[in-house]
Write a protein that binds this DNA or RNA. Structure first.
Length: 312
DNA sequence: ATATGGCCCTGGTTGC
DNA sequence: TGCAACCAGGGCCATA
């Protein structure tokens, strides 16, 4: 299931491939399930817009989109107004490299966003248009470069949303970003919480981006039992957890994410972090540190893997 | 306010 | 061997 490292990998890949490209036509499946915005509204909103940039917010992929081009024949790598925009504090101002090398940087203000959540089984792929569409393809955006951006999701737990920024604020993850949250803010998140630390890590309104794999892996590296009450952890334990979480997320991003289930990046390539898992889906196998068999229990309704000796 | 549990989905695994 | 029941699980919503 795509979590922070997988979503980061996909967002970077999509950014590199389609930044500056323009959406010519958008097609959506007729299922009601993956659409937060009605498909017809998404298609109408997306068509004609330039992709200014792509980034990750928690587990969401956000495509920053420019205004609809005044002249449809305009160059595909048109980057919007030249010169700097005065509002530097606006989150929706994205820096976009100039297509011609050596000319410097332009800044374009996003006027709309396409927000993609991959759910459990979602994929976001950049392909040539003649590649046959996989089963459960729910969105196909044809780009002026000739390529296609496709959203595929067999289980339909993913969500697609179009947002016009003239009428609403830009997308922001509800919880804090695990890779940049300050140590004291991290401690404060869990103070007096009655739920288990595992459930707290999975709660997206506290931290955005942590899912089942990296919750289990970070708790193992920090030596903490998943079922322990979040409010009962000491400051020292919480700091160890924060550092373990950062370490495991960064390491996973370097390896292109964990390919469990059917995760692939924007090019359809698998990640390698699953080879480095210490506990996740290693039930019964010897702990990499002490050789005690890894246990699987249910915490907060989720399959939870831990080492009974290393985690107290 | 905070915490818990059911629901949505389909493909892969398990069990008879 | 074949088919059906079962299970995974992120986020959302209703409920305690």
């Amino acid at each position: 299931m795509p979590e922070l490292p997988e979503v980061e990998t996909i967002a970077r890949g999509v950014h590199e491939r389609i930044r500056g490209d323009r959406i010519v036509q958008a097609w959506f499946s007729s299922y009601p399930q993956p659409f937060k915005t009605p498909p017809t509204q998404q298609a109408a909103g997306l068509e004609g817009r330039t992709v200014l940039g792509v980034h990750r917010e928690g587990k969401h992929i956000v495509l920053e989109l420019g205004g609809v081009a005044a002249h449809p024949s305009q160059n595909a790598r048109w980057m919007g107004h030249a010169g700097s925009h005065p509002n530097h504090k606006n989150k929706n101002v994205v820096r976009v490299g100039h297509p011609d090398p050596g000319v410097g940087e332009n800044e374009s203000k996003a006027e709309a966003q396409w927000i993609v959540h991959l759910g459990m089984t979602g994929r976001l792929l950049v392909t040539a248009p003649d590649v046959p569409a996989a089963a459960h393809t729910h969105a196909r955006l044809s780009l002026v470069s000739g390529r296609e951006l496709r959203f595929v999701d067999p289980r339909r737990f993913g969500r697609l949303e179009f947002r016009d920024l003239s009428g609403s604020a830009g997308f922001e993850a509800s919880g804090a970003e695990p890779l940049t949250i300050a140590a004291d803010k991290f401690v404060a998140l869990f103070r007096r919480r009655k739920l288990s630390i595992k459930a707290a890590l999975l709660n997206q309104t506290l931290l955005a981006g942590v899912g089942n794999i990296y919750a289990d892996e970070s708790l193992f590296r920090a030596g903490i039992r998943p079922g322990k009450g979040a409010g009962r952890l000491t400051r020292v334990e919480l700091e160890r957890l924060r550092l373990s979480l950062c370490e495991v997320l960064r390491h996973a991003i370097r390896l292109g994410g964990s390919s469990v289930s059917d995760y692939v990046d924007a090019d359809g390539v698998r990640g390698f972090f699953q080879l480095e898992h210490c506990v996740y889906q290693r039930t019964g196998l010897p702990c990499r540190r002490c050789e005690t068999p890894i246990r699987r229990i249910l915490v907060a309704g989720r399959g939870t893997h831990y080492c009974p000796k290393c985690q107290r």
